[in-house]
Amino acid sequence: MQKANFSAVTEFILLGFSTFPQQLLPAFFLLILLMYLFTLLGNLLIMGTVWSERSLHAPMYLLLCALSVSEILYTFTIIPRMLADLLSTHHSISSVACAGQMFFSFMFGFTHSFLLTLMGYDRYVAICHPLRYRVLVSPRGCACLVAWSWAGGSVMGLVVTMAIFHLTFCGPNEIHHFACHVPPLLKLACGTDVAVAAKGVGLVCISALLGCCLLIILSYVFIVAAVLRIPSAEGRHKAFSTCVSHLTVVVVHYGFASVVYLQPRGPQSLEADALMGTTYTVLTPFLSPIIFSLRNKQLKDAMKKTFLSKLHPEKI
């Protein structure tokens, strides 16, 4: 059995934005920092509102809290290191730290996809089987599904990380990305197992993500069919309005993911990955709490109530 090969290459160099003009790096740093802080604040605000408002103690908002946790942890895995590299001339990362970053980024990323799938199932049951909602989506059952999502994300992260870092890295050690991303690392690996590992990782990731996407699409096929059977326009609007925020986040999530991971691999594609990767790593988590806060009326009203209670407690 081949030993995990950390001996040949003990550290990698994250090129990231090193090819960008130096005068632009402080502006990139400030922009990404502000978006990161807003992402943290938005997700913490959602979690705090759900925790403090009893009317939101429902499976739908439990899933939303779990989604916020996964986004906070995912961004924490990558963005602080990215910010440090933007202002630093020392861009090296040890092989162990690189493997750790890859594991946690895939773990939280896949957990995020699994949770979005569960939210689609929640909306399907709420609209298509409203009388059985409390049975099919009980708080206890929902908590178990969330736990399985985290377990599934952990397994996916472990599988991908072990497949990549089981390879031999014998130099060079420059990663054309701001994080330990799979395609640039595969370019640095040598040996006969690289093609097998690349196909295996690609098959596992695409199968999992495509499966989640198809389940969400199937949920919305049934949802649309049920909504169209509602006789009044007001009833149809009210039913579908509960799905708008989730559907928007799904489109943003899979839209940016497909741009990053399904783009053609040409000679210059690794250079473009550094910039394209920020759309999925920084922009998607930044937009998610905004979408849920603005498009979910019940959550928006609860946030207003919580905010006003802090400013004018005597009026609440």
Score class of each variant (00 low, 15 high):
residue 183 P to T: 08
residue 227 V to N: 11
residue 242 T to A: 07
residue 192 T to I: 00
residue 192 T to Y: 04
residue 146 V to M: 14
residue 243 C to Q: 04
residue 148 W to V: 13
residue 168 T to Y: 10
residue 224 V to D: 09
residue 198 A to D: 15
residue 202 G to T: 00
residue 209 L to Y: 10
residue 169 F to D: 07
residue 228 L to W: 09
residue 163 A to P: 00
residue 158 L to C: 15
residue 239 A to R: 04
residue 217 I to N: 01
residue 240 F to E: 08
residue 155 V to K: 05
residue 150 W to S: 03
residue 158 L to N: 07
residue 220 Y to P: 02
residue 190 C to R: 15
residue 171 G to K: 11
residue 196 V to A: 09
residue 239 A to M: 02
residue 211 G to H: 11
residue 236 R to V: 05
residue 162 M to H: 04
residue 156 M to R: 01
residue 207 S to I: 03
residue 210 L to F: 14
residue 195 A to V: 03
residue 139 P to H: 04
residue 200 G to Q: 01
residue 233 A to E: 12
residue 192 T to R: 13
residue 244 V to M: 14
residue 214 L to W: 15
residue 223 I to S: 06
residue 161 T to H: 11
residue 173 N to S: 15
residue 228 L to F: 11
residue 231 P to E: 12
residue 187 K to G: 03
residue 204 V to M: 13
residue 241 S to I: 02
residue 239 A to Q: 05
residue 208 A to Y: 14
residue 164 I to Q: 14
residue 136 L to D: 08
residue 180 C to E: 06
residue 222 F to P: 01
residue 163 A to D: 05
residue 187 K to P: 00
residue 228 L to A: 03
residue 161 T to G: 04
residue 219 S to K: 06
residue 149 S to T: 09
residue 149 S to H: 06
residue 224 V to G: 06
residue 234 E to T: 07
residue 216 I to T: 00
residue 223 I to E: 02
residue 153 G to F: 10
residue 224 V to N: 02
residue 227 V to L: 14
residue 232 S to H: 07
residue 193 D to Q: 12
residue 220 Y to K: 02
residue 191 G to T: 00
residue 163 A to K: 14
residue 174 E to P: 02
residue 140 R to H: 13
residue 200 G to D: 00
residue 144 C to M: 14
residue 196 V to K: 05
residue 139 P to M: 04
residue 138 S to R: 04
residue 168 T to V: 03
residue 218 L to T: 11
residue 183 P to R: 07
residue 207 S to K: 08
residue 177 H to W: 12
residue 235 G to E: 08
residue 197 A to N: 02
residue 141 G to S: 09
residue 165 F to K: 06
residue 199 K to P: 00
residue 154 S to Y: 12
residue 174 E to R: 09
residue 191 G to H: 04
residue 162 M to G: 06
residue 147 A to K: 09
residue 204 V to L: 12
residue 212 C to G: 01
residue 181 H to W: 05
residue 182 V to N: 04
residue 175 I to F: 01
residue 243 C to I: 09
residue 238 K to C: 11
residue 151 A to C: 06
residue 151 A to R: 00
residue 206 I to E: 02
residue 159 V to Y: 14
residue 189 A to Q: 00
residue 192 T to V: 02
residue 204 V to Q: 01
residue 155 V to H: 03
residue 144 C to V: 10
residue 167 L to A: 04
residue 233 A to F: 13
residue 183 P to W: 08
residue 137 V to N: 07
residue 194 V to G: 03
residue 212 C to A: 06
residue 214 L to K: 05
residue 156 M to D: 03
residue 190 C to I: 00
residue 206 I to M: 01
residue 157 G to K: 12
residue 220 Y to T: 11
residue 212 C to P: 10
residue 138 S to K: 05
residue 204 V to K: 02
residue 197 A to L: 05
residue 146 V to D: 09
residue 146 V to Y: 07
residue 230 I to M: 08
residue 140 R to Q: 15
residue 234 E to R: 15
residue 229 R to H: 09
residue 209 L to Q: 07
residue 229 R to P: 02
residue 163 A to H: 08
residue 164 I to P: 07
residue 229 R to E: 14
residue 181 H to F: 13
residue 153 G to D: 11
residue 210 L to C: 12
residue 231 P to L: 13
residue 158 L to T: 06
residue 195 A to D: 10
residue 243 C to H: 06
residue 225 A to P: 06
residue 153 G to L: 12
residue 155 V to R: 04
